[in-house]
């Protein structure tokens, strides 16, 4: 099973699309590793610089409809090869979310209120996430701040994470 822990990259915007996560010009790559330098290259956000902010991160916290647009699994892959296996947001585009779990990664929904609270308390600070998958709890810690937030994922999504993705699961079952 993958690691769902690490330093958090806060992307405080809704509708971050697949082309911002990994532009189409890199879809000619046929290995996942080749995508590594290009994650979030086209995302233009005040205070965000991919060359500075991506490398130290192990998790993303964002807003609504993350991953909208293209079906490209290159989006999860570009996150994965940068050791980011979890995205937490208010909602996700269907295909993106499915792709994440299909790769044994996680896209976890939290309410807007909880996200507001997280952004207020932690954004701009060095924040660590530790995920307790079994208990269904996120542990957020930063200097002078600590917070536990319960989360839920479906039994099927959990089975995919535990099976390391959909290919392994489907090969076992169908």
């Amino acid at each position: 099973m993958k690691s769902f822990n690490g330093k958090i990259l806060f992307l405080d915007r809704s509708d971050i699309n697949t082309d911002e996560i990994i532009p189409a010009r890199y879809l000619t790559e046929i290995t996942k590793e080749a995508l590594k330098p290009y994650l979030l290259e086209d995302l233009e956000m005040t205070g965000f610089a991919p060359e500075r902010d991506v490398a130290p991160s192990g998790a993303v916290i964002t807003r609504a409809n993350f991953g909208c647009g293209s079906s490209r699994e290159h989006a999860p892959w570009a996150l994965e090869v940068n050791d980011i296996n979890i995205v937490i947001g208010e909602s996700f585009a269907r295909i993106f979310k499915q792709n994440m779990f299909n790769c044994g990664m996680m896209a976890v929904e939290l309410s807007r209120d909880v996200l507001d609270d997280l952004m207020t308390r932690f954004a701009g600070k060095e924040t660590e996430l530790v995920t307790d998958l079994e208990a269904g709890v996120f542990h957020f810690t930063a200097a002078g701040e600590a917070l536990e937030v319960p989360f839920e994922i479906s039994d099927f999504d959990r089975a995919l994470v535990e099976a390391g993705g959909w290919v392994g699961y489907a090969d076992q079952h169908y």
């Binding site: 079906s71 699994e73 295909i95 299909n102 959909w166 169908y174």
Partner: peptide, 19 residues
Amino acid sequence: AAGVGTTDLEVGMLKGVCA
């Protein structure tokens, strides 16, 4: 008719099913 990622496609090619 649904767009899917590469893993769903892969299982579709192999098993003829999708979730």
